[in-house]
Amino acid sequence: MIVRIMGEGQLRVDDSHLSGLNKLDDELLAEVQSGDEDGFRRTLGALLDCVRSLGDPLPDDSLEPSELILPRPDTTLHEVRAMLRDDGLIPG
């Protein structure tokens, strides 16, 4: 799957990593819903670090459609709350 981290670019992440990413996403969703700013910041960082470490960056001139878009590392809890669906940032 192609994942875009806003402000950074796109990475190709193997679908086999989706369940691990979903666990972090579930944690992030709970922290956003409870207003846990410290937990939110920690988990968002962990999610983005995980995608960066598991993914292979695509060239900057690549025009692949992103299947998943994640927020910038400095995105606020309030901004992420506006981006969330019922199942978090990652569908499934």
Rank of each mutant, 00 (worst) to 15 (best):
K23W: 05
Q33C: 05
P59I: 00
G7K: 06
P59N: 02
L77K: 02
G35T: 10
P71W: 00
P91Q: 10
V80K: 02
V13Y: 06
R12A: 14
G20P: 04
G45H: 12
L24G: 07
S16N: 07
T76L: 02
L47I: 10
I69N: 06
M6D: 15
L89I: 13
D61G: 01
L21K: 10
L47G: 11
D74C: 01
D87M: 13
E27K: 13
G9F: 08
L68Q: 02
E8Y: 03
V51D: 08
G20L: 11
L84G: 12
T76G: 04
D60L: 05
L54V: 08
Q33M: 15
K23F: 11
E27Q: 14
D61T: 04
E31F: 13
P71A: 04
E79T: 00
A82G: 04
S62F: 04
A46T: 15
A46C: 02
G20I: 11
G39D: 07
I5A: 07
T75Q: 01
I69R: 09
L68Y: 03
D25H: 09
V32W: 04
L58V: 02
L63M: 00
L77T: 00
R52D: 06
E67L: 05
E37I: 15
D25Y: 07
E27N: 14
L77S: 00
G88M: 08
V13L: 13
L89C: 11
V3E: 05
A82T: 03
A46V: 08
G88C: 06
D74N: 04
I2H: 03
D26W: 04
T43L: 12
D14K: 12
V80P: 10
S16Y: 04
D60S: 00
D74T: 08
T43Q: 09
G7E: 10
T43I: 14
E67W: 01
A46N: 13
L58K: 02
T75C: 14
R81A: 15
L84I: 07
D87F: 13
G88L: 08
D15I: 12
V3Y: 04
L24R: 09
D87E: 13
E31S: 11
L47M: 15
L21R: 04
R85W: 05
L18H: 09
R12N: 07
H78T: 05
D74R: 02
G55L: 06
L29Q: 07
P73K: 03
D25L: 07
V32C: 15
D60N: 00
D25P: 04
S62P: 00
T76S: 15
D38P: 03
P57F: 02
A82Y: 03
F40V: 14
H17G: 12
A46P: 06
L21A: 08
D74Y: 00
S19E: 12
D61M: 02
D74M: 00
I69V: 15
V51N: 05
G20Y: 09
I2W: 01
L28N: 13
R12Y: 14
D25F: 12
P57R: 03
I5G: 06
L84H: 04
D38V: 14
H78R: 05
R72S: 05
D36M: 12
R72I: 01
V80L: 01
